[in-house]
């Protein structure tokens, strides 16, 4: 059983780790699969390039590290620069299309789907803080890595109390957004 390998990467503060956490929890708890999450720890989680590595499988996952990403979610140029080579042929790149530009380092055969998540969060929803939830909804729609229902159940338990309706609205907005 080969696990699905997902890396979410961006700058500390963009909600990168939370994005991975929702996916991991959705798979492990609400789809009764197995998942692990290893996150950047230390100074890099507070502003510089950081990432969460999520492995999803039907069996327990002893090795929690992404080697050949099936899905890369890139929130920033430097995160893309750092991890783009990890994508395997046929993989999917989900990226913040206003904040980074693709180049010839993108491996052959990778499907790239962009979304201006920060702009949508700021201009459409009025709160930049939900950028990651917009990205998450888009990720779930474009890849089907977890079901929409499982993702919403997981995010409901992970966001601060009283904010779930707004976060779910942001998720829905990203979910409905066509790729650029």
């Amino acid at each position: 059983m080969t696990p699905i390998e997902l890396r979410c990467c961006g700058q500390g503060g963009q909600g990168v780790i939370m994005t991975g956490m929702v996916v991991g929890k959705a798979a492990a708890i609400y789809e009764d699969r197995h998942a692990t999450l290893v996150q950047s720890f230390g100074p890099e989680a507070r502003g510089s390039t950081c990432s969460a590595q999520v492995m999803i499988s039907d069996a327990p996952v002893p090795f929690p590290y992404v080697r050949h990403a099936d899905i890369l979610v890139a929130f920033s140029q430097s995160a893309y620069d750092k991890f783009v080579a990890e994508l395997k042929p046929g993989a999917t790149l989900i990226y913040e299309s206003d904040l980074l530009s693709l180049d010839n380092r993108l491996p052959q055969g990778v499907v790239a789907r962009g979304i201006g998540a920060t702009r949508i969060a700021t201009e459409v929803l009025g709160r930049r803080i939900v950028t990651n939830m917009v990205m998450l909804g888009f990720l779930v729609k474009q890849t089907g890595i977890v079901s929409k229902e499982a993702a919403i159940e997981a995010l409901r338990t992970l966001v601060p109390p009283g904010t779930s309706a707004f976060n779910i609205k942001a998720f829905e907005t990203g979910y409905q957004q066509p790729p650029e």
Partner: peptide, 10 residues
């Protein structure tokens, strides 16, 4: 260890 301590799982 740090990794097992911070790794999330089911």
């Amino acid at each position: 260890d740090e990794t097992v301590g911070h790794m999330m799982g089911k």
